Amino acid sequence: MNYITILPNLLIVTMPDKVKYFMWLPLGPQKSSLGVSWLFPQSTRDGEKFTEIAAMEKSDLGPVLEEDLFAWSRTQAGLRSRALRRGAVCLPKSR
């Protein structure tokens, strides 16, 4: 499995039997849309259980995205906080 990130909004996941990609599209300063698609080679599509595998791919993604959505929403809330320090991030000097 390989993960390829193309900043700022594309994630590609490659596997021997499929490619899955995620694209986040901004809808405004506080809102975005997520699209997920799968690409299957003909050899996978010709398999006897392809319909079952494709349905499982889709249903298995829901719980993962639900966890991610919670993390994303909390991050956004933190970015809107008045307590957030603004400006450049200062990292400690390495020794």
Rank of each mutant, 00 (worst) to 15 (best):
T75P: 02
L69D: 00
T51V: 14
Q42D: 09
P26Q: 08
P29E: 10
F22M: 08
R95S: 07
L34M: 08
L27Y: 02
D17G: 12
R80T: 00
F50N: 05
L84V: 15
A83Q: 07
L39Q: 12
R95Q: 07
P16T: 11
L91D: 12
V19C: 08
V64H: 01
E66H: 05
T75M: 14
R95H: 03
I12L: 15
F40Y: 15
T51K: 12
T14V: 11
S33Y: 01
W38Y: 14
T75W: 05
V64S: 11
S94H: 12
P63R: 15
G87T: 10
P26D: 11
R85G: 13
D68R: 08
P92E: 11
A54R: 06
S32C: 13
C90K: 05
S33H: 02
E66R: 06
E57M: 12
R86V: 05
R85Y: 09
I6N: 11
F40R: 12
Y21C: 06
A83K: 13
M23H: 06
A77G: 04
L25Y: 00
Q76V: 00
G28H: 00
D46C: 12
S43W: 05
E52W: 07
E48M: 13
W72H: 04
T51G: 13
K49M: 14
F70L: 14
V64G: 08
F22H: 06
S94E: 04
R85T: 09
D68Y: 01
P63Y: 12
M15H: 09
D17R: 10
K58R: 15
M1K: 15
I53G: 10
T5P: 05
